[in-house]
Design a protein around this nucleic acid. Structure first.
Lengths: 346, 346
DNA sequence: CTGAAAGCGCTAACAG
DNA sequence: CTGTTAGCGCTTTCAG
């Protein structure tokens, strides 16, 4: 079955040329006569020859490979980014090595693998590096672009959006609607997105003279968020509005509120999310949320990485894109009882 | 910035041993004295040495890499499979190369890339190979496991579930509920899953003396399914039940029916899906569907691939796992007007 | 157990 | 344009 692997040498022999002529024939812009190339291609076809990428990488010292690292694909936001970025790199002739961050503390070993595999760049989705890890990678001159996390290291680029402003909008908007017990459904507690959204949220509430009524942690996950919602509403003083750090959790909250706790959204509780994933636009959910400009983020992140691969001296950038409030049906109409003037949605 | 790459030779020099001693020290079960290994590791640490996986692959002729190919991550069913399978292979010490099938007819070039990159196995999700492509890959002795598609080639393994029986159940169950105009919302028309589900469905209807009332194509995608639903319900004779070839389309149909066409589900239209993705269990959707045993599928597919990588003479298998009807709220209660005895759900 | 030597399959000067 | 010659960084006999 397994045809013994055929090498450029075999092709050379059959075509009656040198081995390097074969190599040249398979290089897009090499100097080979059409005649030679034709002979070579003919022989290659006959033998079923395919150039060995590994051998090529070894000598050229370029693997044409990019590592993509993420921690979970539960959130459609990241599967979208993954698919788009992958297709982009694929079109550019890169291969994509996919790594998942282990749930336990085994991330160092992933980094080890990434370095050993000689990738030319790393795209990190919703994952960050600690300083030591960043230094390790930087020492090897491997460019890294981080999407939706900050990193405590100057040499690394990051692409994200204005989480603080988004949180601010959510807080002040809910307050302007007349809500008085506004709670926060937190994402992964030590993630930068969560912290920034929370801080912005608290500032937004403060701008309207309010404080955050309660916080529970949903870890950016559906099931955790359902439970967090139950806890939030089991308290003596029940929230009348909720800002969730992502859409998935916001939807989990709405499901729990409506179908388990018998609370109407938005009549009894307003809910705001973050991301604007496709299912937030579905009429059943119709979630008011802060849209991340995901297309732009992908474009920026991929271009940045390519640029840094091409020119090692490219300055790392920290790109912050604007978020856009999407008013839908999960929040009360403005102007109702107790409502104040709405904040700028800018 | 970029530290000139340090090789085993550099380490050997610093440690005062031979280059091959370094190599051995980094091989789990090589014969090296603890003393030597310690010296080597010390020097390696000092220099920041990491073995070069590419060079290793070249000489061992084993890349420890598996290709995963898919066409889209819109359907959460496949993101789940992707994540699980990836983590599994990662744990086994394999690297994962991710490929997306181009939307146009560029799939041959993906296969070309896969072969050139010397992967040891290929996992295909919801994608198949034509005979010629299968032969090409098989000629290189690369094992392939296909999930949720059939392939017209004996040498390739496949893992799927009993689509025909699932379709049969959907058809006969809807008929037993008393529905009389039962339509089909098709997936990708030339996919084997779609064909099998459709044929089973028609057979199930026939078992109750009915025919399929109408068919529209939703291509397994949300937006296409919404449009297909509009078409279905713009016809003079409107369906009173719908079987969608996957959950994503079933949910799209429900959204369109309820919120756009003003039709109640299940009171006016019953809907059945296929897959049992997490969001089908969410109360808003509460979709009656056919559950694919996704965990089992992943386990089977990954084990099969590993087995075939380890033993080239392993017989390819065609594994068909059972589906399980999950009765939820998108179908009428049995026993209503016009209902007959329910079929075996077995 | 350890070092020397021989490549894995390919690209990249370098002459011709 | 083409062949010859060196390796890329590593693993693997093979002696010692």
């Amino acid at each position: 079955m397994k045809r013994k692997s055929v090498t450029s040498r075999d092709v050379a022999r059959l075509a009656g040329v040198s081995q390097s002529a074969v190599s040249r024939s398979f290089s897009p812009n090499a100097s080979v006569s059409d005649k030679t190339r034709k002979k070579v291609m003919e022989a290659a076809r006959e033998l079923g020859y395919r150039p060995n990428t590994i051998a090529r990488s070894l000598i050229t010292r370029s693997s044409r490979t990019i590592a993509v690292v993420t921690y979970s694909l539960e959130n459609p936001f990241y599967t979208f980014v993954l698919e788009r970025a992958s297709r982009f790199f694929q079109k550019q002739g890169y291969h994509l090595l996919l790594f998942f961050a282990p749930s336990d503390r085994g991330f160092d070993s992933v980094i080890e693998e990434i370095i050993r595999s000689q990738v030319e760049g790393v795209l990190m989705l919703a994952i960050t590096l600690d300083t030591e890890q960043a230094e390790t990678v930087a020492d090897f001159g491997i460019p890294v672009v981080i999407v939706n996390r900050t990193v405590n290291y100057a040499g690394i680029s990051q692409v994200g959006c204005d989480n603080h402003r988004g949180g601010f909008w959510a807080g002040s908007y809910l307050a302007s609607l007349g809500h008085r017990r506004i709670a926060y459904l937190a994402g992964l507690e030590d993630s930068s997105t969560n912290q920034q959204r929370y801080e912005g949220f608290v500032a937004g509430l403060a701008s309207r003279g309010q404080e955050c009524h309660a916080v529970e942690v949903g870890n950016y996950r559906y099931l955790d968020a359902s439970q967090a919602t139950r806890r939030l509403f089991a308290a003596p003083s029940v929230p009348d509005a909720l800002f969730a750090a992502n859409d998935l959790m916001a939807i989990a909250a709405m499901e729990t509120l409506r179908h388990e706790l018998g609370l109407a959204v938005p009549e009894e509780v307003s809910v705001i999310g973050f991301d604007d994933i496709p299912m937030s636009t579905w009429p059943s959910h119709s979630l008011t949320t802060l849209q991340q400009p995901v297309e732009q983020m992908v474009v920026k992140a991929t271009e940045l990485l390519l640029e840094q691969i091409a020119h090692a001296d490219t300055e790392p950038e920290h790109i912050m894109l604007p978020v856009t409030p999407m008013l839908r049906g999960s929040t009360r109409r403005p102007g109702g009882a107790g409502a104040e003037a709405a904040p700028e949605t800018d």
